[in-house]
């Protein structure tokens, strides 16, 4: 029975890996096409410089392969990317992967710190809101209201508070961007936890278990939490993705050396290898988050194992 379960899991993971590879192809091709659609390229500014001849610019474009048609450039990039080489940054004249790796590590550190903060505070608050009628409704309403504040505004406000009060280092420190990102995603965690717990509290199997005289502590840990975990695990996987996208802007405003500032510079400079590399790395993070969530769901919920 165990071997059968393992083979089902392996098949499931293989299917997910195939989906991930196809998605990465799509994401990278689309990024290439969209960057190409934007007017100009890295050498547009050089063309406007009277001290650089048009022959020199043409030579440089040729050297970096920018004179080739889009499909050719994409296929060349794809071939080298499959070997782990994301191309050479036009702006820095360095391998894009060498530029991206430390920045991606910083972004991952920021996103996972924010994720941990948001969930460590959000789940107990959501539970509290589900077990108290009016205070719970008020907290849920406040969480909905907090959802309307964009992370961008929060980051600006946090920056002002940090400068005025001196409570936090204003730039380059993990604490402030992590707090801003956690504050941005915590309302979703609170609302989802509350909804998941409320749904389980009314479920027939919990009503029946209570009628069989099972103690409240046992009900919480054996019935309520495992049953409420499913939507929350899925949400945690998605949260990583939303945190990553939100972190790009927050990093720029609060001076965290992650992918955000690098991507912004690359977009201004039309540094295609860095742009595409950043997007592909973000997509990989998103897929990994979703995959971890799916495997956790698979481990927690027997029904998913049957369906898988």
């Amino acid at each position: 029975m165990r071997a059968g379960g393992d083979s089902v899991l392996i098949r499931y993971l293989a299917r997910r890996a195939l989906h991930a590879v196809l998605l990465l192809f799509g994401v990278s091709a689309l990024s290439f096409a969209l960057v190409d659609l934007a007017p100009g390229d890295y050498f547009t500014d050089a063309r406007l410089n009277p001290r650089i001849s048009s022959e020199t610019v043409a030579g440089l474009r040729g050297e970096y392969g920018l004179d080739r048609p889009l499909p050719v450039r994409y296929l060349r990039w794809l071939r080298s990317a499959m070997a782990g080489d994301l191309g050479v940054s036009l702006a820095y004249n360095l391998p894009a992967s060498a530029l991206l790796a430390p920045r991606a590590g910083n972004t991952l550190l920021l996103a996972s710190s924010a994720l941990a903060l948001a969930w460590l505070a959000g789940v107990p608050l959501g539970w509290w809101a589900a077990t108290r009628k009016w205070p719970g409704r008020i907290l849920s309403f406040a969480a909905s209201a907090a959802l309307t504040i964009p992370e961008l505004l929060m980051a600006v406000m946090a920056s002002i508070v940090a400068v005025r009060t001196g409570w936090f280092p204003a730039g380059g420190h993990l604490a402030l961007p992590a707090l801003v990102l956690a504050a941005g995603s915590m309302p979703v965690v609170i609302r989802h936890t509350r909804a998941a717990v409320l749904e389980v509290v009314d479920s027939p199997f919990l009503v029946a278990a209570r009628a069989h005289g099972i103690s409240e502590g046992r009900l919480v840990f054996r019935y309520v939490l495992p049953a409420a975990a499913n939507p929350l695990i899925s949400l945690a996987g998605l949260s990583l993705g939303t945190l990553l996208s939100a972190s790009l802007l927050v990093e720029v405003i609060l001076g965290w050396p992650g992918l955000g500032p690098l991507l912004l510079e690359a977009v201004y400079a039309r540094d295609v290898p860095v742009i595409v590399g950043s997007i592909v790395i973000s997509a990989v993070f998103l897929m990994l988050g979703s995959l971890v969530a799916d495997v956790a769901l698979y481990a927690c919920d027997p029904r998913i194992r049957v369906e898988a």
Partner: peptide, 29 residues
Amino acid sequence: RRAIQLIPQDPGTSLNPRLTALQVVSEPG
């Protein structure tokens, strides 16, 4: 009052799907 037991309309939904038959039946002690 546990000596009055109610079996609901769809008895299957009154069982925790995460538990085994042994756990379900032994839960009430």
